[in-house]
Computed example of a mutant assay.
Amino acid sequence: MRAFLIWLAAALALAAPARAFETTATSAWVYDVATGTVLMEKNADVPLPPASMSKLMTLTMLFEALHDGRYTMESTFPVSVEAWRMGGSKMFVEPADRPSVEELIHGIIVNSGNDACVVVAEGMAGTEAAFARQMTARAAELGMTHTNLTNSSGWPDPEHRMSMHDLGVLAAYMIREFPELYEKFAMTEYTYKGRVPSNANNRNPLLRLGTGEWTADGLKTGHTQEAGYGLVGSAIQDGRRVIFVISGLDSDRARAEESERIVNWAFRDFAMNRLVPAGETVLEAPVWLGTETRVGLTTRNGVNVLVPIAVRDQVRVEVVYDGPIPAPIAEGAEVARLVVTVPGRPDTVTPLLAASAVPEAGFVGRLRGAVMQLGQRAISAVTG
């Protein structure tokens, strides 16, 4: 087994030191999308009351139905008396209305309409209870292992639970799979049929910050007496996206301040570094009994590493393989691994591929290689 250290690029030599971050949220999960790096977790796998943040699962079910053609944006749903009577945040639909899918999406995202969620649930599954069972099953399929939903809106229920990790997984799925629909999470206001509710403006505090350094574009706030104030949020800076989920704050103001602090920390105290551009040769490895004595090692998509600035001088990068690599070698075959070790975080392991094919040598070439190998062993025996 061979391991070769690689000197890190000067891009890692950044200036300001990173600060330790302690969140005032009772539960939190912060995630860098491009590298799949969890930046922070606090009670992240504890099932908690998600309040209106669980509306993201209702929207996911509707988004999936749009993608597979069961509905269009112009499809309409009836409004039951049960939906009309829902309390809390409302879109203010009435039994005589036939809101479209697009209107309901706006009503859920911006107005956090509990009534709109029930309309969707009944329209898609017949009853809200049946829809909740479908959501719970779908959540499990998406890898959300601490989710059990009993209603479509996040209405308080002792069995209605999600972890902050699960909500983050769901947010990442929505952003990745439904980019054209995800854009709607940046809407700041919406009113259905001129009925002006008190919640006509999106409660997401980050959408109106306009810091100039980063831009927030989603996703959903939540609040009940039991859950406290929470937020599933996402922001972008220079093409880098961060998703975060917090819960248990004691006020709307505390939620806004903590959300801004988390986003600033995630962008300022971690740096994205392109360690290996896509297609670039990392190094050349020796080949055993091939028509060529060496083969280039490359990656399929390049290697990007997210580095906490505080430990930038402690990052270790190795290329690991069993060598020399025996011929024949197919172009694109996985023959080595690039291992990046960042203190305090799991190793990042990227497959390294053969940059070109190396056929097996003919009889004379194999004979020459065998003689050279025997000579090297003899030298080792004498000097060892």
Rank of each mutant, 00 (worst) to 15 (best):
W214S: 04
N202E: 11
D217P: 02
K184H: 03
L181D: 02
L206C: 14
S198K: 14
N201S: 11
E177R: 09
K220W: 05
P179G: 10
E213G: 00
L209N: 12
T191R: 12
R208F: 05
G212E: 05
L206T: 13
R203E: 12
R195W: 05
L219P: 00
W214P: 06
E177L: 06
N202K: 01
L209H: 15
N204Y: 09
T191L: 10
N201C: 10
K220F: 03
L207S: 02
R176I: 01
E213P: 00
L219Y: 00
N204E: 08
T221Y: 02
L219T: 00
F178C: 01
T215M: 09
M187P: 01
L219D: 06
L206D: 10
L219E: 14
E180A: 14
R195Q: 06
E189P: 02
T215A: 05
D217T: 14
N201A: 12
Y192C: 07
G212D: 10
T188P: 04
R195M: 07
D217M: 06
N199S: 14
S198E: 15
L181N: 02
K220E: 15
L207P: 03
D217G: 08
F178R: 01
E183R: 15
F185W: 07
N201K: 15
E213M: 06
Y182T: 08
A200P: 00
T211V: 06
K193I: 03
T211I: 07
L209A: 09
E180R: 13
N202D: 04
G218A: 11
T221R: 00
E180W: 15
I175Y: 09
P179D: 11
N204A: 09
T191H: 08
G212V: 08
V196A: 12
Y190R: 00
R203V: 04
R176A: 05
S198T: 13
R208N: 12
T215K: 07
Y190P: 01
